[in-house]
């Protein structure tokens, strides 16, 4: 997909995001807010796709990484001022990456459902820690965070995320992630260190989830530990699965659709979440390989 000129593609995307952002004051602020939501969800879904899709390590803890990044970044700008915003994004990402390293280690020993429950557990532990930490506002969380996330930041970083993850996977080095996904024993017989690839996937995935959390904090202006429970992780997993595991473009489209869907269904008010859940079931029955995977690209679904 992205092979040559991928850096040019990235620069074009960044310029476009900047241009839209420049005129953003003229847009309907409600729609602009949703657009930023979409950008953040793209980052989350694409980064989780590296772990769940490309590397095949079923993780249910993505919301935890998001929380680490969000709380870290929000606390930074609350304490030391708004000018630190870009720096806070990076620090949030790095803290989340460290958490990812920690979570990645059990992945060396646990597989499948066991790994899913371990990552879910890590996500919940992170949430409980924030809930009990006075420094991060305990159960009420952090409020009064400056609104600093613009269209440029959300979509610019989404473009960087896509570039990094698609670029990584589309290299000889990155084929290792797919090999680990397909067959760890055969991968190690080819000189590929499965452990290293798995941890790398967790660290990179967590890094971008952390940045997404930081963006989210400066977009919603309020952070509550309860917002990062495992239902949030599952929302992101659903995006990845609907997009087609390991298909970056599909996952991006799925993130867009699934973010817009609740807004579209808003007129059905009390029925919209029921419709959302029925949609998940219907899609799994009708298009389990993902919404945007057509037979010619179809992967061998033999998990």
């Amino acid at each position: 997909m992205i092979r040559h000129g991928s850096r040019r593609w990235l620069i074009a995307a960044l310029v476009a995001a900047f241009a839209v952002s420049w005129f953003s004051t003229r847009f309907n602020q409600y729609y602009l807010g949703i657009a930023i939501d979409v950008g953040i969800n793209i980052i989350l879904a694409v980064s989780l796709n590296l772990i769940n899709g490309h590397t095949g390590q079923f993780s249910l803890g993505h919301a935890g990484f998001m929380a680490v990044g969000g709380f870290t970044a929000a606390k930074l700008t609350l304490l030391y001022g708004e000018s630190l915003y870009p720096f806070s994004l990076i620090v949030g990402g790095i803290m989340a990456a460290l958490a990812g390293l920690l979570v990645g280690i059990p992945s060396l020993r646990c597989k499948g459902d066991y790994l899913a429950i371990v990552t879910l557990g890590f996500g919940e532990i992170i949430r409980v820690i924030f809930q009990n930490s006075q420094f991060f506002g305990a159960a009420t969380g952090l409020t009064g965070i400056a609104k600093l996330t613009t269209f440029f930041w959300a979509w610019g970083i989404a473009a960087v995320t896509i570039y990094v993850i698609a670029g990584l996977v589309n290299s000889t080095y990155g084929r290792g992630f797919l090999c680990v996904h397909d067959d760890e024993v055969a991968a190690s017989a080819m000189g590929i260190n499965p452990l290293r690839y798995k941890v790398t996937a967790f660290v990179i995935g967590a890094f971008f989830a952390g940045i997404a959390g930081a963006l989210y904090a400066h977009h919603k202006r309020v952070l509550q530990p309860d917002g990062f429970n495992f239902i949030k992780s599952i929302d992101i997993v659903v995006m990845v699965i609907l997009g087609g595991m390991g298909r970056t473009a599909g996952v991006v489209v799925a993130a867009i659709i699934l973010t817009l869907l609740p807004e579209v269904l808003r007129s059905f008010a009390s029925y919209r979440m029921i419709i959302y859940s029925l949609l998940i079931i219907g899609l799994m029955m009708g298009r389990p390989q993902g919404l945007f995977v057509w037979p010619i690209f179809k992967k061998n679904a033999k998990n």
Binding site: L178, C179, A187, A189, G191, G246, N300
Partner: peptide
């Protein structure tokens, strides 16, 4: 035990990574 989701080319390509500095 071939890599099921990879093409013929990529199956072999993946095995060359160990001799690369990149």
């Amino acid at each position: 035990r071939l890599f099921a989701s990879l093409s013929v080319f990529d199956n072999v390509r993946a095995a060359t990574q160990l001799h690369r500095a990149h």
